[in-house]
Amino acid sequence: MNRIKKLFQEKKNILSIYYTAGYPNTGDTIQIAEALEKSGADMLEIGFPYSDPVADGPVIQASSKQSLDQGMTLKLLFEQLKDLRKTVTIPVLLMGYVNPVLQFGVEKFCEACAEVGVDGCIVPDLPMVEYEEFYKDCFEKHNLSNVFLITPQTAEERIHKIDGLTNGFIYLLSSSATTGKNLEVGNTTEAYFSRIKNLNLKNPTMIGFGISDKQTFDKACSYANGAIIGTAFVKAIADGNLEESVRTFMKKFKA
């Protein structure tokens, strides 16, 4: 069984961490994954950097740029992940923009994911229609989950369509925003989270964008199967001892 499915069957309040591959240093990708699993992360989203990340705020933009400037590529990332499954057992997704995937080759990308033990992908600028027509078969053949995003503005009919197309989880954006904005759970956000919860979707949901501390994490977990933290984590590992930074950061959520 796909590791993502298994995780959602077995656990509640899932904590998923996003980080940019090759940041702060090119060789850190695996070390961060190992440290995160050791400190209690349930799932990982490893970002492959792109030069023009339009859905990202300043922090993830800067980490992507630094990573690229230091020589990160998708090809290098797959080399780094070669022995991923020797030490990392939790589900791992790759997250990034569609153009690097296109240049790498969709078929080749799916094969490489399967080979190193990646369980799914999040490609925010890959449209649903394109996925259905050109990517879905390839993803499914390699047992990869493709995760779609929904926002407070996503129509109900479309949410059901997304629910039918995906087989991992649905990425619930707390608001329409680029990454790194703080979550202010007001009445409208709560109403939106409740609305989604009451749709009884077949896929689990994870809330992302704006989760930065225990309080916002717990809040998110009351409406969904868990939450995703990206910007706050990327900020936390900018400098200092990597393993220590990861441990200190994760303690906040496991208290």
Binding site: A55, V98, D125, L126, E130, Q153, T154, L173, A177
Partner: peptide, 10 residues
Amino acid sequence: GAYIPEMLYP
């Protein structure tokens, strides 16, 4: 085509 993140879809 329209290769846009969901946030821009509506």
